[in-house]
């Protein structure tokens, strides 16, 4: 067991975790933050993307013990004071989600993209989402949602 202190969505947690506990398992199973999803077991689908110290990370590929002392943001922490984050709003406006399962990961990834590159080209957006799989939407509206969020 390892003891870790982390900050998630501006709330401090002190947790005992097994050495082999994945970060996504800690979030979902122990802390009840079920907005972060598990869609594969080979780091391909991106449904589990969260932010660790501001960078998007696949939480299925990180051990909980590795994030000791770090600041985490999950999809639950994105909206502020009940208002959807502009990216979330843009996803809704552009019908960029259908079943919604891959959506939290895509939203977190998109927020990180616009933080690192405030005006990405269409190609840059398409390439940025290389680590995500969405079976429903055909991606077009996801790209459109990010493009719309750039202008806001």
């Amino acid at each position: 067991m390892v003891k870790i202190n982390i900050n998630i969505n501006n709330k401090a947690y002190s947790e005992e975790v097994e050495d082999n506990t994945l970060l996504v398992e800690l979030l979902r199973d122990k802390l009840g933050l079920t907005g972060t999803h598990v869609g594969c077991d080979t780091s391909q689908c991106g449904a589990c993307v969260i932010h660790v110290d501001g960078d998007s990370v696949k939480s299925c590929t990180v051990l909980a013990a590795q994030v000791n002392g770090k600041n985490l943001t999950t999809v639950e922490g994105l909206a502020s004071e009940g208002q959807l984050h502009p990216i979330q709003k843009s996803f809704q406006n552009n019908h960029a989600l259908q079943c919604g399962f891959c959506t939290p990961g895509l939203v977190m990834s998109a927020v990180d993209l616009l933080k690192k590159n405030s005006s990405p080209s269409e190609d840059e957006i398409r390439d940025w989402f290389e680590g995500h799989i969405c079976r429903c939407t055909g991606y077009k509206n996801i790209i459109k949602a990010v493009q719309e969020a750039i202008t806001q």
């Binding site: 972060t36 809704q92 919604g100």
Partner: peptide, 21 residues
């Protein structure tokens, strides 16, 4: 009309089977 289903799903508050406690 944009979907009434979306805000919940976008906030990560959608409840899929494995999310049920």
């Amino acid at each position: 009309v944009s979907r009434f289903e979306d805000p919940e799903l976008l906030r990560g508050e959608g409840t899929y089977t494995d999310d049920i406690k």
